[in-house]
Simulated assay, not measured.
Amino acid sequence: MDPAKKRVQISNNRGHINGWTSRDRVFGICVAVDGVTRSGVEGKPLAAADSEDSS
């Protein structure tokens, strides 16, 4: 994550890093698979009240 530039690093499910994108292009974050929490997910999901879209 790069809060200063409001961007996040994106990757695929095989561990490869694909680059950077702006936060407004992120539609979801995988936090668990088959009920097992993914590592490193703490603090990444934003609550609806914290998002930049206030609608």
Rank of each mutant, 00 (worst) to 15 (best):
V41I: 15
G40A: 05
P45Y: 01
G40Q: 03
V41S: 09
G43W: 09
S51K: 11
S22A: 11
G28E: 01
D34Q: 12
G40T: 07
C30N: 08
G19L: 05
N12E: 09
I10C: 08
S51G: 09
D34S: 12
T37V: 12
D2P: 02
V31T: 12
G19P: 04
E52S: 13
D34K: 15
A4F: 03
D53W: 11
R7I: 08
I29C: 08
D2N: 06
K5Q: 07
D2T: 01
D53M: 08
E42P: 00
T37R: 15
C30D: 04
V36Y: 12
E52A: 14
Q9N: 13
D50C: 04
V36N: 10
I17S: 15
V41H: 07
R7H: 10
G35F: 06
K44T: 00
C30K: 06
L46E: 09
D53H: 11
R25Q: 13
P45V: 01
R25V: 03
V26I: 10
P45M: 01
G43C: 02
K6D: 02
D24P: 00
A4R: 02
S11K: 12
P3L: 01
I10S: 05
R14G: 10
H16E: 15
V33K: 11
N12M: 03
L46Y: 01
K6S: 03
V33G: 02
I17W: 13
G35L: 07
Q9S: 13
I29V: 15
G19M: 06
L46Q: 11
R14E: 15
L46H: 02
A32N: 10
V31R: 08
G40C: 07
E42S: 10
P3R: 00
M1P: 02
A48H: 00
K6A: 01
D50R: 10
I29Y: 08
K44D: 01
S51A: 14
D34E: 15
D50W: 04
A48W: 03
T21A: 13
R23V: 09
R25G: 02
P45H: 04
S51M: 15
G40M: 06
Q9E: 15
M1G: 05
